[in-house]
Computed example of a mutant assay.
Amino acid sequence: MSNVVLNVSDVQKSFGGLRALSDINLQIESGKTHAIIGPNGAGKSTLLNVCVGRIIPDSGSVIFDGQVLTGKKPHQINQAGVARVFQTPEIFPDLTLLQNVMVPAFARRDGAFRFNAAIDLRSEAELRDEAEDVLQDLGLHDLRNHLAGSLSRGDKRRLELAMCLIQKPKLLLLDEPTAGMSRHDTNRTIELLQRIKGRGMTKIVIEHDMHVVFSLADRISVLAQGAIIAEGSPDEVRGNPVVQEAYLGGAHL
């Protein structure tokens, strides 16, 4: 596979007697959207947690853009160009939408989540303009002065995505980005992710909704009981009888 930007090699992770990940090998191509699917408990979120430094694997390595991520702290991995949207939106509910987006903007500039008073106000104004542009792009600009805690679930997910996009990541990890959404909000999220696909950003998507997966993915890996049992294009995975049996008890995807 050419132009691999993320290389997960021989990763294993156990929790007590439970083998969560077993000899995971995964290569993600630059600029592509790679979906990871599988039944509950397959190890999908554990794999993402390994990639972002929240879980240290028992063995194996994760290399992103030529840098070894294994053993690094989550903030170091974030600074290397990896951002993540979580299953439950991680926002600041008592801040406005604009303030929420400016927090990671300051972090990207200063290298830590802090405000540097020594930096002139013109630089802050530039960050504010950039934050407003991102909110505009995600259809949230009219709500920029509203408290984030007042948003619907779908808008909270879009806000968290805005907080990731302003960091200008090279790799975006989305952990069930449409979980709990109405069909209307799900379709809006699909349209949004399709729109940003042309920006050259690599994305990994964990998702149970097959409509979302087949709408977005260039390639799909299937996890079951902590191991990759199949990988291929959406059409290849859709027609794979092993996947149908493991994922849907033999029903067609």
Score class of each variant (00 low, 15 high):
residue 1 M to L: 12
residue 1 M to N: 14
residue 3 N to R: 11
residue 3 N to A: 13
residue 5 V to G: 05
residue 5 V to F: 05
residue 5 V to W: 01
residue 6 L to A: 09
residue 7 N to W: 03
residue 7 N to Y: 08
residue 8 V to M: 03
residue 10 D to K: 12
residue 10 D to A: 14
residue 14 S to N: 09
residue 15 F to W: 04
residue 15 F to N: 07
residue 16 G to M: 05
residue 19 R to E: 15
residue 22 S to V: 02
residue 27 Q to T: 10
residue 37 I to H: 05
residue 39 P to G: 13
residue 43 G to K: 02
residue 44 K to H: 09
residue 45 S to Q: 08
residue 46 T to D: 08
residue 48 L to Q: 06
residue 49 N to M: 07
residue 50 V to G: 00
residue 50 V to R: 01
residue 51 C to F: 03
residue 51 C to P: 05
residue 51 C to E: 11
residue 52 V to N: 09
residue 54 R to I: 10
residue 58 D to I: 01
residue 58 D to N: 10
residue 58 D to P: 07
residue 59 S to Q: 10
residue 60 G to T: 03
residue 60 G to F: 00
residue 61 S to V: 02
residue 65 D to Y: 06
residue 66 G to R: 05
residue 66 G to Y: 02
residue 68 V to D: 15
residue 69 L to V: 08
residue 69 L to N: 02
residue 71 G to C: 03
residue 76 Q to N: 12
residue 76 Q to I: 12
residue 76 Q to S: 12
residue 89 P to R: 01
residue 89 P to I: 00
residue 93 P to G: 13
residue 94 D to S: 14
residue 95 L to K: 06
residue 97 L to P: 00
residue 100 N to H: 09
residue 100 N to K: 05
residue 100 N to E: 08
residue 103 V to W: 04
residue 104 P to F: 09
residue 105 A to M: 08
residue 106 F to Q: 11
residue 107 A to E: 10
residue 112 A to I: 10
residue 114 R to F: 13
residue 114 R to K: 12
residue 117 A to C: 10
residue 118 A to M: 11
residue 120 D to I: 03
residue 122 R to A: 12
residue 123 S to Q: 13
residue 129 D to G: 05
residue 130 E to R: 15
residue 130 E to W: 13
residue 133 D to M: 13
residue 134 V to P: 09
residue 135 L to T: 01
residue 137 D to S: 14
residue 137 D to N: 13
residue 142 D to G: 12
residue 143 L to M: 14
residue 145 N to L: 10
residue 145 N to S: 13
residue 147 L to H: 12
residue 152 S to C: 11
residue 153 R to I: 09
residue 153 R to N: 12
residue 154 G to I: 00
residue 155 D to E: 15
residue 155 D to T: 07
residue 156 K to E: 11
residue 158 R to Q: 06
residue 158 R to L: 07
residue 159 L to P: 02
residue 159 L to W: 01
residue 161 L to A: 04
residue 161 L to W: 06
residue 162 A to H: 05
residue 162 A to I: 04
residue 167 Q to V: 10
residue 171 L to F: 06
residue 172 L to I: 05
residue 176 E to Y: 03
residue 176 E to R: 00
residue 177 P to L: 06
residue 178 T to L: 06
residue 183 R to C: 08
residue 183 R to D: 13
residue 184 H to F: 09
residue 188 R to W: 01
residue 190 I to L: 10
residue 194 Q to R: 15
residue 199 R to N: 14
residue 201 M to R: 08
residue 201 M to K: 04
residue 203 K to Y: 07
residue 203 K to I: 12
residue 205 V to E: 06
residue 206 I to Y: 04
residue 208 H to S: 07
residue 211 H to N: 14
residue 212 V to W: 00
residue 212 V to E: 03
residue 214 F to I: 07
residue 221 S to C: 04
residue 227 A to K: 12
residue 228 I to T: 09
residue 229 I to D: 05
residue 231 E to D: 11
residue 232 G to P: 03
residue 232 G to M: 04
residue 233 S to K: 07
residue 234 P to T: 01
residue 238 R to I: 04
residue 239 G to V: 06
residue 239 G to A: 13
residue 239 G to M: 12
residue 247 Y to M: 08
residue 247 Y to Q: 06
residue 249 G to A: 08
residue 250 G to E: 07
